[in-house]
């Protein structure tokens, strides 16, 4: 067996919770969390913009913390709880943050949007956002090329009062 073949057949069992559902899989160790979500679970709302941890488009929440799913191997997450953008809308009802994004025209092409929503959802669970500077700091870990962040700043201020953003 060549070295290449060994790399591609390094399998591990994996159990985790994704958007409230139990997931069991056996997976190559080299598969990123992003690829696992997109390809294995077909949760294609998580997008890949740089595959290097810079742009933030692939951000998901793992055990309560916003992480870059392109920088983690899926097999690292055995026993973890993962939330993706697909979890935000409950029973057809957009979250407050999603609704504010819509009201304030905070998205254009929408490719980066999932990552922003997940970064901000995690942020708003622990912080209030009450002014422009706080909003920009909360947004600063992700890149958007379409909007100049103008609508996102407004959306964040609209929901940054510390009330739950998930309902």
């Amino acid at each position: 067996m060549t070295e290449q073949e060994q790399i591609t057949t390094d399998l591990h069992p994996l159990h985790l919770t994704v958007n409230g559902k139990d997931v069991d899989s056996v997976l190559d160790s080299r598969i990123s969390l992003a690829d696992f979500l997109r390809h294995e679970l077909r949760l294609t709302g998580t997008h890949l913009g740089c595959e290097q941890g810079s742009c933030g488009a692939c951000t998901v929440i793992v055990d309560g913390v916003a992480v870059r799913s392109c920088l983690m191997f899926a097999v690292q997450l055995n026993g973890s709880t993962v939330e993706t953008v697909e979890s935000l809308c409950v029973d057809g009802q957009l979250s407050r943050l999603q609704q504010a994004f819509h009201e304030e025209h905070a998205l254009q092409c929408g490719f980066c949007t999932s990552g922003f929503l997940m970064s901000l959802t995690a942020h708003l669970r622990e912080h209030q956002v009450t002014n422009d500077q706080e909003a920009r700091e909360a947004l600063s870990g992700n890149i958007c090329r379409c909007t100049g962040y103008a609508g996102m700043v407004k959306a964040l201020l609209a929901v940054g009062d510390g009330e739950s953003t998930t309902q």
């Binding site: 997109r38 949760l43 294609t44 709302g45 998580t46 997008h47 890949l48 993706t84 953008v85 697909e86 935000l88 809308c89 957009l94 999603q98 994004f101 819509h102 009201e103 025209h105 998205l107 929408g110 490719f111 949007t113 999932s114 929503l117």
Partner: peptide
């Protein structure tokens, strides 16, 4: 008028080529 495109993109249901 607010955008019709938004809902699918906000909920992860947008359809990009890699999807």
């Amino acid at each position: 008028v607010k955008r019709r495109e938004d809902r699918r993109l906000l909920t992860g249901e947008g359809k990009f080529l890699d999807d």
